[in-house]
Design a protein around this nucleic acid. Sequence first.
DNA 1: CACCAGGGTGGTT
DNA 2: AACCACCATGGT
Length: 214
Amino acid sequence: MIRAAYERMLAEYGPQGWWPADEPFEIMVGALLVQQTTWAAAAMAVAALKDQGLLRCEALAAAPLEVLQRSIRPAGFFRVKSRRLNMLAQFVAAAGGVRALRERSTPRLRSELLALEGIGEETADAILLYAFERAVVVVDAYSQRWYARMRGTAAASVLELRTRVAGELAGVEELNEWHALVVEHSKRACRKTPLCARCCLNSDCQRGRNAPAP
DNA sequence: CACCAGGGTGGTT
DNA sequence: AACCACCATGGT
């Protein structure tokens, strides 16, 4: 069921090619900045940081909050995000850089990321998947609605959805595309009506893509 | 004008 | 465990 919908989204939208960045640390920074904002806004903030030479963890860790805030303002929440970026960079620098982090086990890395302020489950898993290429299922609010609508039931728990996805999709490549495709699909689907004509890609759904909206 | 975007945190019931 | 206000800018 999940795999069928995945294949359909892939056929319809094409490979998304996440994450758009030059290096892992840039992905970590972007993952924090994109929280509760658009990628377009986050990308501007990332580019501004890059222009200032702040995409190296030592530089970012030492940068004054005011400098960071000026760069990341378009991404919103610039006061909290500047502090959190600073701490994230301090963590990476203290660990000996991304190269050293890459040696860590996925469970350890995950718990260390979760211990940082401003990094919850979704951001931690996104970093693990996209920056460290670990086969992790990234569950967000979109995918929970996506799954609920597909089955026509109430929202599933994060754990259940994670288990389901892991049972039907495998490997970094597919899990990478799955999360990206769900986000892309959600941009096109109507959020206001629980089941409109474009919310469900499952062929079994009574209100399929070509059905009239309720 | 209202609503929301590739969330997280802290507080209240 | 489920809800809430808050964080803040920019686009529709």
